[in-house]
Design a protein around this nucleic acid. Sequence first.
DNA 1: CTGAGTAGC
DNA 2: GCTACTCAG
Length: 271
Amino acid sequence: MNRKYLYPILIILVTVVLYYGDEYVDKLNSPANKTLSNPERSGAEFNDTFLPASTTGEIVKHNFYTLSYSEEHEQAEWVAYELKKSDLSKSEFERPYFIEDKKVETRSADWRNYKNSGYDRGHLCPAGDRRMSFEAYNETFLTSNISPQDHDFNAGIWNRLEQKVRYWARKYDGVYVVTGGVLKGDLNTIGHENVSVPNKFYKIVVDFLDENYKAIAFLIPNKPSPESYFEYAVSIDEIEDATGIDFFPQLPDSIENEMEQTINLKVWGKK
DNA sequence: CTGAGTAGC
DNA sequence: GCTACTCAG
């Protein structure tokens, strides 16, 4: 057989085995042996309680993450997803092409806006967080999930933060993540569709392992930085002020208020 | 891991 | 317009 066809088929086969193999193992282990300590706190219904409010009214639910799209800025104002410990498999997939998100009614930006713009097509929900299946990985390559990022920012401090989030997901047996660019003020644009270039990006990470939810948030300039992301840690309230987004409206007020005001870096491992 | 640009059908 | 290949931090 031609090698051109053999390789993709092998990838698909391996993927199917990995994907359904995990489901099979889960079935064997369930419900007597629960490897996750908080399985009842997972799934779509639970995730909905962490969804931010949309300022645009255009929420799009994908299978592996949810976003709120801003047609004005031609990108998501937030992308939200649960990153489970079990999501962190090491399957390797070939990077696909970015394609339009057909679930966005106003059409998401064409990838060509980014070509020769000087900016990366920076993932909001990282491809590295969705390697549990071929479908999940590919779903991150929708243009509704990218934002113009300075390359050295994306490959540098932002990438280091994303890897830390994966570490926290392993340590805390899953975290909830909300991330996006700050779409406010006078922003430069790129491409024929005028995709806004955020000056800052934010990321909020919630550990919901026990009843005492705790969160950490970051607001980082869209430029190279040799510093630690901890230098850019802020409260969720500060991100709400900067973006105008209400992040956890569905949580009980007492939990929301406490979580959004607090900055406790030591419990997140800052030395 | 995070990405880019170019050549060719 | 899409795929394959090469390359960088």
